[in-house]
Design a protein around this nucleic acid. Sequence first.
DNA 1: TTGAAAGCGTTACCAG
DNA 2: CTGGTAACGCTTTCAA
Lengths: 338, 338
Amino acid sequence: MKRITIRDVAKEAGVSVTLVSFVMNAKRDSSGRLDCPVNPETADRVLEVASRLGYKRNFAAASLRSGRSNTIAVIPNDISNKFFAGISKCIEDKAHKLGYTVFFASSDEDGEKLGNIMEAVIAHNVDGIIVAPCTGGDAAINKVVDSKVPVVLLDRDVEGLKGVGKVLLDDVAAGKMATDLLLDEGFKKVEMISYTLGISSLSEREAGYRQAMTARGLAEKVHYTTYGLADSDVERIIRDAVARGVDAIFLPTYSLSALVLATLKKLGLKTPKDLAVVGFDESDIYSLYETTVSHIVQPLKELGEKSVEVLIDMIHGKAPESIILTPTLIKGGSTQKA
Amino acid sequence: MKRITIRDVAKEAGVSVTLVSFVMNAKRDSSGRLDCPVNPETADRVLEVASRLGYKRNFAAASLRSGRSNTIAVIPNDISNKFFAGISKCIEDKAHKLGYTVFFASSDEDGEKLGNIMEAVIAHNVDGIIVAPCTGGDAAINKVVDSKVPVVLLDRDVEGLKGVGKVLLDDVAAGKMATDLLLDEGFKKVEMISYTLGISSLSEREAGYRQAMTARGLAEKVHYTTYGLADSDVERIIRDAVARGVDAIFLPTYSLSALVLATLKKLGLKTPKDLAVVGFDESDIYSLYETTVSHIVQPLKELGEKSVEVLIDMIHGKAPESIILTPTLIKGGSTQKA
DNA sequence: TTGAAAGCGTTACCAG
DNA sequence: CTGGTAACGCTTTCAA
């Protein structure tokens, strides 16, 4: 069961390997014609022989020779994360449509691991990388950018990084939107819980919250907890907040939202009566919770597709683009003033 | 910024390319010694030069020459699916630990697309494939198996497929467990909703349900709906079931569980009072729903890790193994008889 | 429109 | 232990 090579096809079709290579790489133009400097009849014969013999291109060989691979790498922090799971699919679909294969690998919010992965994917000759940066990963990203491999930052920005594409959410607007919803409903003591992760998306959502509060002359208060260790912190924060008569709380990530809802339930507290809540990202829990929960939705499909578009444009030599997309607010019962 | 090759390293270190290749491929044994037929001092020098020059192996070249790629492909139906998102991470971690890179691509429950993806990953010289088969994908899988690429079936079995590894859940036990819980609690009219997907996991969960029912001489009833179009069906089914005095219902997938819980909420029905429920897979919603929800949990970590182990053993020439893992039952309020 | 031939960077083989 | 050299299968000049 030897593998069929371009040479086998050439021999069988009675043409040179060059011709076969041309034909196999030719894209069909709009009229369905093969667009390559080959006699159409010859081309048809080659195509027929190739499919009869079951020829499959060997990407390793093509990649070695051409330096390209038609493969892009996507490096989220955590594939199992809800936001990235959704976006990955959009990225994959779009990339396939454009003739690219996608590689996934997660950094687990670990800068060093991100570095290793970056090296690995570059060794695999990927044509470009879509990455959600994590704290401590700047050096790794810089190295890649320096080595001229196109990079698109997704979801999280890195200050002062030149030459990279960016596809981000307008996180300040998201924070403002969420906070304004609460304030418009008449809640006054609005606080926020965030992670100490040091990533742009979180700090900008916080900035949005602060802007909205100060715009109405209200006092801001943000609680911080550590990613992965938030459980006990959050319970303490919620207890304390309710005791201090806090009206409402804004959660800038899905995991915090889920955690807070669970904590409220555990403590026997009701939203919005005891504490109004605005959550982040989409999830079944927002519609299934006792009262439905207001939340900010990111345009996953656009985020995914745009990041692929920007990256592939860069691969084709275009200048890196920066795209900021707008979030949507879904109103639920958790912000309804009695 | 030319790329450093093995040849550059060889020249700089004053040795042959062969030596460099040996050193770069040598694994460190337990005592940290490089295990290869090279003088340790020479090896150290090569290592030093390689890192000083910033040498990175070119995988395309290695793969072309050796036929191996140290890469495996994972093909779930849907990366964004909760079950697979979780399992993907485990697979990735384990594979990395064993020195393999992982490729993801989803089949979207579409046999034809599965075929295309299979071809694509094979063209990329992957050493093996972990796949969750979907209806209509048997032909594609068979072709791969015939071409001697190791394949492990994950989560779903395909009857009569020889020469593949398998890592599955004991789905019959899962169905039985769920049903027995309901019956033990005293529910009698227990029904089930399933998809018309024709995949083994669902039909076995159904078999488990039927066995548990017949074992106690009770009448079985299974409703079917179509994947992706279940919303209206489910509402009708639930309305009808409650009208007929059905006690309890078993949902064999997460998506059905979420849908039924949403429907109950929408119809103003309470679990377990109006209808007891056992769901499937893990999710925040089970703990956040008004009453917590009983559900079957799959051992994600083991499923992921075992599938990698079995696959890599096959890559190393071992015979395909079949592993069946046992689910766990988490009891919640949704099955508590008043 | 066609073909010959030169590599891409590695690993495998064989000889010393 | 070490080194030369031939592939691997493809793309890409360049020339016909």
